[in-house]
């Protein structure tokens, strides 16, 4: 069987398109590359959707934590504390069983027991909490002078936030936020190992990599392939975020611009 044929059969296997059964014997390198790459689609989907949705909640959380009114501040503080203080792995399990129980009470929750939306919700809350803390830190380090200058020019309320405070916050937070984004993509590999079932063996990249390692009893091929895919993904994320960083800093003189340093923050 040619490699092109394998790609046609298994290229979209993780989405349920193509061959129904996974290969059982005769695993070629092409099989492994194709299926693990096919699984990457899930990682990319989880990462991008959670990141974009989480960005807005994170902004709200950062503002909430920075608020003087305790009715707003306390919930934001607790939300961030709960999601940053506990392992993501346990959060996934807890989320899955929570949705399972809710499903019995309210049938509308039935889709949430599937990974594509249930795990996404957990990842969304989790990344919102981590980025919320980053944005909060940045919000507190916005130079006092900028705020005073905005006051002097007659900015106030929403307009001041939108035009002055928020752009500066983003600019300050962006290097740390880049790491959070890289790290979120890495965290997506946990999904199918934590309660959420892989429906009809449609899993993510790590799911297929561990499938091959189990079947061939040889971890030295599938895991390096997975690593290669993730390094590629990391490089793409860095490039995209670097471009945004450039745009955020476009008004600054060259030497003041903040470079992004690659420092992914491990496990959550």
């Amino acid at each position: 069987m040619s490699c092109l044929q394998i790609i046609q059969d298994y290229g979209l296997r993780s989405l349920g398109i193509g061959e129904r059964l996974l290969p059982k014997t005769d695993f070629t390198l092409c099989h492994q590359f194709t299926l693990i790459g096919s699984g990457m689609l899930w990682n990319i989907y989880f990462g991008i959707v959670a990141l974009i949705a989480g960005f807005f909640l994170a902004t709200a959380l950062a503002m909430g934590k920075n608020a003087t009114n305790p009715v707003i501040r306390k919930p934001a503080e607790w939300f961030i504390f709960v999601f940053r203080g506990s392992p993501l792995f346990i959060q996934f399990f807890f989320g899955y069983f929570l949705f399972l129980s809710l499903k019995k009470l309210v049938p509308a929750f039935a889709p949430f027991t599937d990974a594509w939306i249930g795990a996404l919700v957990v990842l969304f809350f989790n990344t919102a909490a981590y980025s919320g803390e980053i944005f909060y830190g940045a919000l507190r380090t916005v130079p006092k002078g900028e705020s005073e200058a905005a006051d002097a020019y007659g900015f106030s309320g929403w307009k001041k936030f939108r035009r002055i405070t928020w752009p500066t916050t983003l600019r300050l937070a962006w290097p740390a936020y880049t790491n959070e984004a890289i790290f979120l993509f890495h965290a997506t590999t946990l999904v199918f190992f934590s309660g959420f079932p892989a429906w009809r063996q449609q899993g993510d990249a790590l799911y297929y990599a561990s499938y091959f390692a189990e079947k061939t009893f040889n971890p030295f091929i599938p895991y390096p392939i997975l690593a290669g895919y993730f390094i590629l993904l990391t490089l793409i994320v860095i490039t995209v975020f670097g471009l945004i960083n450039k745009r955020l800093n476009r008004h600054l003189p060259q030497e003041y611009r903040r470079k992004i340093r690659l420092r992914p923050r491990l496990i959550r």
Partner: peptide, 9 residues
């Protein structure tokens, strides 16, 4: 640069 869970496995 590579997910740590992959290393564990």
């Amino acid at each position: 640069g590579v997910p740590d869970i992959a290393f564990f496995l």
